[in-house]
Design a protein around this nucleic acid. Structure first.
Lengths: 138, 138
DNA sequence: GATAATGCATCAATATCAGATACATTAAAC
DNA sequence: GTTTAATGTATCTGATATTGATGCATTATC
């Protein structure tokens, strides 16, 4: 299967940006996102930790965006939603000492995959949540 | 689980580059890569299709690299090994017509994810297989 | 014709992800 | 203070993806 947390988190952030003047709850978000409240709360708690959204417990509580959409980049959402998980995985196998490639592949791959992460983040940093909101028809 | 085809393919390519003067077979590759011959053959057939390696059937057959390592970029390997599968997945859910975000999220995400693919590929295009081989100790 | 290789289809084992359930914690409303 | 309604979190389950395993067709060399 495939990890959809970033994509879902983007939709959560856009929905919160659209309703920035009210508190939404995880049930309501789950309905418009066609998913379940637990999954929403898990993702939201990551976004809270990153200070992109605020959540309030108790009766009358809910979730709202914590910064101006122009101040939130897709990089922020990406970092918050993936929890350091890499885009591409390394295969972790025992080293065959007789094989020079087997001996160095771990370092080689780490460098490649770190490079991919870096270029992805710098690309995502160029787009703000506000840029996305321009595409929402009113 | 997570897709390791790119990482494994990189190791295959490096191993073939290291032994560029001989034919290796899928059993041998499976041994040094600590995986199984079927998986190797599946990945190799993708690399053959991309003309990065050549394979020869029949007795005495095997696999060898088809281009100079300096002419092969990581982008080539990436494209060959992932078969158009995206790094990040979209969640595909029914559209809620009453929600403006739900209505546009598909287009918004496609654009974001395409951007990530593009920046990843352009970053990978800058490194050649030869660059990787410099890190192999002799 | 025997042998040894890739190519490919299919099935099994395993890992991951999202959905479901339950419950603790918290805070507002009454 | 009790009730109510929200998040936070742990755990289990089901669905799905990925890799490993097996078998066999195809192919080419000896």
């Amino acid at each position: 299967m495939v990890d959809t947390r970033f994509s879902v988190s983007v939709q959560i952030m856009m929905t919160l940006a659209f309703h920035s003047d009210e508190l939404l709850n995880s049930d309501g978000l789950a309905k418009v996102l066609k998913t379940n409240p637990t999954f929403i709360r898990k993702l939201v708690s990551n976004l809270v930790e990153a200070r992109l959204v605020e959540s309030f417990r108790g009766k009358g509580g809910g979730i709202k965006i914590a910064q101006a959409p122009s101040d939130i980049t897709l990089k922020d959402i990406y970092i918050a939603s993936t929890e350091e998980k890499k885009l591409i995985s390394r295969h972790k196998k025992p080293v065959i000492k007789a094989c020079p490639i087997s001996c160095c592949i771990e370092n080689v791959l780490d460098e490649i995959l770190d490079g991919i992460e870096a270029s992805t983040k710098s690309s995502l940093a160029k787009k703000s949540l506000q840029d996305l909101m321009k595409k929402v028809s009113k």
